[in-house]
Design a protein around this nucleic acid. Structure first.
Length: 315
DNA sequence: GTCCAGGATTCAG
DNA sequence: CTGAATCATGGA
């Protein structure tokens, strides 16, 4: 049992202020599943092997770490994109000509893509299919608690692939994974044989990375896009989930479009930081603050049938 | 009790 | 290739 003592709260220097609402969306809005908040509004979370606390105050963002543990502040600065890369990319998004995006950014100013560990993103989104964020968080918490290494204060790191592969059926079942248990075991066994998988994946182009991720059991187009975005920092990756489908249908009029086609639109329209735009749209859709001029029509005649396939320029 | 969830997989057409 | 059934579990 490791004694746990928090350091005092200290200011965290970011290039842009983070409103408390944005902080909440960022830590508990479906990117990471490892943060929880107490009654005073103080967040506690684990990323990689770092245990940290965050809170928003009148004086700005503050952080704390475990006494005797070095590197917490540096890890937080990297995790939260303190160098301002995403602030610049946000400014380069087409919000000046896109009122939907403008409204989404205004709803959560300063929202960032968390720079997560690849394994953390992969485990989290392997659990994500057909589940709500709250339940994903519970699954991941149980995985860490029952299989991961202790970090102090009752918190645990996520299990390694070998720890996951070695887990018994009963242990996985107790994590309430449902049919996703087979996904986790399968992926754990595959990556256990490739100790440097994260480096190897990081060296791939984004298209190659997405294909490589999708070869893993339980990883389809959407999960692969999320892992590329959150775990490998591929900000051009544009995950299309149920919320984004609804947002693009209601706000842009793309009713009935297949996810692959919406993804194509997102990348073309939003450009190199499409994933960042996606996160703004996702958060705004969940908060129900997007302008929806094309909300699903109840009485109008059948929507115009759209061409299902495009001419393929491939050779 | 019913419905649905930051989907993936498998199978029928 | 597209669409539908199926998957296991818990919260609303």
């Amino acid at each position: 049992m490791t004694p746990c003592a928090w350091s005092a709260w200290r200011p965290l220097r970011l290039v842009e202020p983070v409103p408390v609402g944005t902080l909440r969306e960022q830590l508990d809005g479906g990117q990471s599943f490892r943060w929880s908040v107490d009654e005073d509004g103080a967040w506690t979370g684990v990323f990689g092997c770092t245990l940290a606390g965050l809170r928003g105050t009148d004086r700005g963002l503050e952080w704390r770490g475990l006494v005797g543990v070095d590197g917490t502040e540096a890890a937080l600065l990297r995790y939260l994109d303190a160098d301002g890369t995403q602030a610049k990319l946000t400014d380069a998004l087409p919000w000046r000509s896109d009122g939907v995006l403008l409204a989404a950014i205004a709803a959560h100013p300063g929202l960032r893509i968390l720079r997560q560990d690849p394994q953390e993103a992969l485990i989290g989104f392997l659990c994500s299919s057909n589940k709500r964020i709250l339940q994903i968080r519970q699954m991941v918490a149980r995985l860490a608690e029952s299989l991961g290494d202790p970090l102090g204060g009752g918190h645990h790191a996520l299990p390694s692939w070998s720890q996951l592969a070695a887990a018994s059926e009963a242990q996985l079942k107790a994590c309430a994974l449902g049919y996703r248990a087979a996904f986790l075991r399968g992926t754990a066994r595959r990556l256990l044989a490739r100790p440097r998988w994260a480096e190897e994946f990081a060296a791939l182009s984004t298209a190659e990375l997405l294909a490589e991720l999708q070869s893993l059991p339980g990883v389809g187009p959407k999960v692969a896009a999320c892992v590329a975005l959150f775990g490998f920092g591929r900000l051009e990756s544009f995950p299309v989930d149920t919320w984004v489908v609804q947002a693009l249908a209601g706000a842009y009029g793309f009713h009935g479009w297949a996810p692959a086609r919406l993804e194509e639109f997102g990348r073309a329209h939003f450009g190199p930081a499409a994933g960042l735009a996606q996160q703004y749209l996702f958060a705004a859709a969940r908060a129900d603050v997007l302008p929806m001029p094309f909300r699903a029509e109840a009485s109008s005649p059948k929507p115009v049938r759209r061409p299902k396939s495009r001419a393929r320029p491939r050779r």
